[in-house]
Structure formats: C-alpha cells, structure tokens
Amino acid sequence: MQRAIEKRGIPTVSITVALDVTEHIKPPRAVFVPFMMGHHFGVPFHKELQRRIILDALNFLATTERSGEIKMLPWNWAQARQEGKLIEEQFRLKS
C-alpha cells in the first residue's frame, strides 16, 4: 500500500507496532512504537502522546535518507498506560 503511494511520487511514512511484518514488507519509511496492536498513537485521552507520535513520524519523513529506514521511537508502553490512567483520573475529578 505504502509502496504504491510512494511510487506515485507522494512521500509516505507509516507507524508500526509489528516490526517483523514491517521488515518483510520493506516500506519506504516507518517508525516503530512498542505499543499494543490497535494502539499506534498510544492510550485513550493522552492527547500529548498522540500528538507527539504523529509529529515524530512526520519529522522522520522529512529526514529519511534511504528507502527502508525504520526508526525506533523512544516511547514506552507501561509508561504510556500509567500516564493515561493519571489523565483519566484527573478527567474524572473535574467532571
């Protein structure tokens, strides 16, 4: 999919949680987050984390030098979940 879009001259970057699959498919550019399937942008209501993952991917797009590069992003699932829980607790206190 990503290769088909890139071949049409549109730069692409994907966010993956499955490194083995990505390595086999060889997309032009990808960033890896060590998160659970279906949670590529982190955890519910953690807006800052969701935003930063998007920006990490887009920054990587602008700096990639060779096709097939995969960047490991420095996020941590356990920490993301803890922060998500705190955010939800604060949210509940307010509402």
Binding site: Q2, I5, P11, T12, S14, I15
Partner: peptide, 9 residues
C-alpha cells in the same frame, strides 16, 4: 496530497 501518513493496524 503532498504527504501520506499510514497506520497499518
């Protein structure tokens, strides 16, 4: 589109 962001679930 000039840029495409993908998220293969």
């Amino acid at each position: 589109s000039d840029v495409a962001l993908l998220a293969p679930a």
